[in-house]
Every structure is written in structure tokens, then in C-alpha cells.
Design a protein around this nucleic acid. Structure first.
Lengths: 251, 251
DNA sequence: CGCGATTTGTGCACGGCTTCACAAGCGCCT
DNA sequence: AGGCGCTTGTGAAGCCGTGCACAAATCGCG
């Protein structure tokens, strides 16, 4: 609401990173932690790039946005780089996260150790179902969603995870925003409308599979039969042709 | 392995969609199903774009890659468009999916109804832990991972989901590929090395949160105090600043 | 102290994606 | 039948991201 995303930041230490870079920094961070555990003190861009699964030039350009980080001829200091990235990502303190929806998926997320290890602390669980309120999960008690405002205030929660059914997600999002949450990770398969200034990221498991399905479909069309049919009318014909050839997916 | 991704496809009905388009088609599909349930027969690009959360021009260009789909002055026929997209994504039949790792997350995924509704059928569950083998989840029995090759053959499985701990993921991926799987959805926080021709998509929950954390960090630096401190040592100081500015998030 | 090996940081060009703006086409109404 | 309003499909411009290739910088060693 109050700030626009465009234009250079006037804050001195915010280099206004490209979004693509921001999306990769966490991956670098994970790789660096792994390297640190193995006892490495320094890494070359080549080595870190391999560990993170990216091009080394891209990695160097990404890191160059953080200011002077590496030393030529040597590489990057692992612990120093970890600190720098955690700085930029705002991971210098454990951020409190609220989780709404303690169903099938939410239950699993509440117990997922990966959050705790990587800068986050699930500070509160919520659900609308009174049958679930009061349940203990991983040392936390499930609270009713009406208690959102107080808890968000008390725990200084800025990030929330939505793991509710799709039909409830928009309502939950509205209440989260009203309570002061400004970042949402949405697992519900629907589009969320939020006011400007609130960030939403979406994770849709079925969509990921459907993207893979497309590539599968294409692979099997290439390796398998050449799909004989007229190039002109690509309408209902295709539909029928595919339904018939549907089984031929074995490698 | 056998095919390279570059160059135009020689198959007549594969328009070689841009990857960005492929990633959005599933979202359109979901929105269309929703519209169909509400009784809509046609949609304008504007309407569908709003429902999918994208720009309408982008949507039209995406759909134009599928061939003639809409009618000018009217819009898009909802059911027809659903069929077309499902065609292209290879969703004309329910694809069998294997799920490896029946821990915290895997358990939830096995019970997730969203897969079944959207073109996929979890055909087999695997785990390396003998204590879990034999367990019944959602009508399926957990099998030992050594049985992978047979089951993948029998069920014609081309897509697999990895929900194991990170340290086991690469091994599992190798075995999946050896068994004939050519698409992998990886929930383990690590990079997978797979031979060419195998597609991997990764979902890392902590990374999503870290990206949100970055934006939070930036917001609080903008709205709050101008972050007075030496540019040199950007260490613990920022940490304090953020904690103080944490309250100022009310809309 | 100087040289060579090594590795970072970056200028540059290329390709893909996004967005605007508008012409072409379609149906409806008179 | 003809015109009008609406909506698609697309040319063109601009932006962002990627990757090559190389200059600049640093360390170690003789």
C-alpha cells in the first residue's frame, strides 16, 4: 500500500536484487551450509555452482550484487558468504510463521523439521474446525482462527502459510492481512487477491505434476509413434487420436 | 537420453510451447474447471485472465499457441478449451504416479485428494524403512523400495515424487531412473543429478519462505526506520533493527 | 620482488518473455 | 443486408535474464 516496488531502493545496504537472483540465493545458502558441514572453508564459483545446480557465471553475477564477496584467485569464504546471504534474506533471526489449516497437508507441515533448521519457527497453528482446535501437534496447540489477530500481534508474525481447502483460502487470506500479515505462502489451489504490499507465493502440487505430464506427453510422442494425422484440423481429431493412443506411455 | 530438447519438434501437433506458457496452462485449466462448475459456457480472455491471476494479453498469446481456440467477439468456449489444454498437457488419461518416502510429508501427499481430482493417480508407495513397509495408507500398501523396478513396469509409471530426507534423495532418484521413470518431482532440499532426458522439478518449502523473508526484510527496512548503521559491519545490528520495526505492519 | 596460475567480476550480445496497441474477425441488432 | 460493438490474435518494442569471454585482481612460490 504505502510503498511501490518500482524504482531503486534508497536504503544503503539494499542493492535492489533482481527477482531471479533472490529466488536462487536460498539455494546457494543451502549448498553453502552443506559445504560448511563438510569442512570446506572456501569454495570456487565453479564448485558452488555445481552444488547448487546452476551456471557458474550466473552465480558470480548473483553474488556480485551483494557487494564484494569473493577474492580473486581464491574463491568465496564459506562462512562469510553464508552470513552475507542470510543478511540479505533477512534470516538473521528466526522468523515467526503462522500456519493456518491443520488438515492433511498442514499437519505434515507443522511437523516438518526443515523449517526450524532454516530460519523459521512455526509460532502458531490455526484451524476453523472446532474439532481440531485444542489438538497438540509437535508441541503446539491448535487455536481457533478467530484468535488470529491477538496471536499475530503477540508473536510478531509477518509470514503465514495457508494449508486450507481452496474454498476457504481467500477468506483466510483476508483475515491474515487484516491481522497484519504481509507475506503468504499459499498451498491452496486457487488465486488469492491481496492488497498491494502483501506478497503471495503459491505452491500447487498438482500443477507441478501437470507440467511434468506435459513433458512426458511430448517425450512419448517423440520416441514413440509419429502420431499420424492431418496437420490442418487440429481440433477434435487430436482429442480422439490421443484418447486412443493413451496407453502407449511405457518407455 | 535419446532426444535433445533443442530444435523444433517434428511432430505435427506439438507447437513447441514456450516453457513459460506450459507453466501457466495448468493454472488456466484450474480456473476453467472452476468456471465450468459455476455454469459458465464461455469466458473472455479478460475474465479468464482475472481468474488465473495473469495479464489478459499474455493469456491470449499463450492460448494462441494451441491453435484456433477462441471466437472473436465472444470469447473462449469453456469446455472446449478445457479439452484442448488437457490434450496438450497429456492429461487425457489418469497418469500413474509413484511416491517414494512415506514420512511426514509423504504421508500427507499420499492422502492428498488434489492429485486424484486433477489427472493423477498415486499408483504405488515406497519406503526404505522396513518398519513402514506394509503399512496401509489411503487404500495403498507401502512397498519396499527394492520392488521399484517391477512395480514401475507393471503400472507403467513414468512420474515419481520424492519425499524422502535429503541424504537419501539422490540414491532414490538413481533407482527411479534405472527403473524407467523419466519425470521426478523432488521435495527433498537438495539438487538431483539425472541423465539427460529426465525432467526434474523441485519444490522446497523452506526456500519459498526464505524468498518471502527477503521481501519482508525489505519492506520493514523501507517502512520503518532508515536503518542507521555502518555499511561495513552489517551483522547483528540489522537484526535488532528488524525486531524493533516488526510491529509496524498494520495496513 | 616479480611472475604465473587461478579465480572473480563484468561488458556485451543474444534470446525469451511481457506488454501495449491495434487490426481482423465475429455475432447481434436493426 | 449492413453496420456496430465486442473480443481475439498478433506485430512490435522494451525489459529482463542468461551465458560467453576476457580483463582485473589476488595468492603462492621461487
Amino acid at each position: 500500500m504505502s510503498q511501490q516496488r518500482t524504482g531503486p531502493t534508497d536504503g544503503p545496504d539494499f542493492p535492489d536484487l533482481p527477482e531471479a537472483t533472490v529466488a536462487r540465493l536460498p539455494e546457494y545458502l543451502r549448498a553453502l551450509h552443506h559445504l560448511a558441514e563438510e569442512g570446506h572453508d572456501t569454495v570456487s564459483s565453479e564448485g558452488l555452482a555445481a552444488a547448487a545446480g546452476v551456471n557458474s557465471a550466473k552465480l558470480r553475477k548473483d553474488l556480485s550484487h551483494l557487494g564484494r564477496t569473493g577474492t580473486r584467485g581464491v574463491g568465496y569464504d564459506v562462512t562469510l558468504l553464508i552470513d552475507q546471504i542470510e543478511q540479505v534474506l533477512g534470516l538473521t533471526h528466526r522468523r515467526a510463521v503462522a500456519l493456518v489449516g491443520v488438515g492433511n497437508l498442514g499437519h505434515a507441515l507443522a511437523g516438518y523439521a526443515g523449517f526450524g533448521n532454516r530460519g523459521f519457527r512455526i509460532a502458531a497453528l490455526f484451524d476453523a474446525d472446532l474439532g481440531r482446535v485444542g489438538e497438540h501437534i509437535n508441541g503446539l496447540v491448535v487455536r481457533h482462527i478467530d484468535e488470529l489477530p491477538e496471536v499475530v500481534q503477540e508473536e510478531s508474525i509477518a509470514i503465514a502459510v495457508i494449508a486450507t481447502p481452496a474454498h476457504a483460502a481467500q477468506n483466510v487470506a483476508d483475515r491474515l492481512v487484516a491481522a497484519g500479515v504481509t507475506s503468504v505462502l499459499n498451498f491452496a489451489p486457487c488465486v488469492l487477491n491481496v492488497p498491494e504490499g502483501v506478497d503471495v507465493r503459491k505452491v500447487d502440487l498438482a500443477i507441478e505434476l501437470q507440467i511434468l505430464s506435459f513433458h512426458e506427453h511430448r517425450k512419448s510422442a517423440l520416441t514413440g509413434l509419429p502420431v499420424v494425422q492431418e496437420p490442418g484440423r487440429v481440433g477434435q481429431d487430436l482429442q480422439r487420436a490421443n484418447r486412443l493412443g493413451g496407453e502407449a506411455v511405457g518407455s
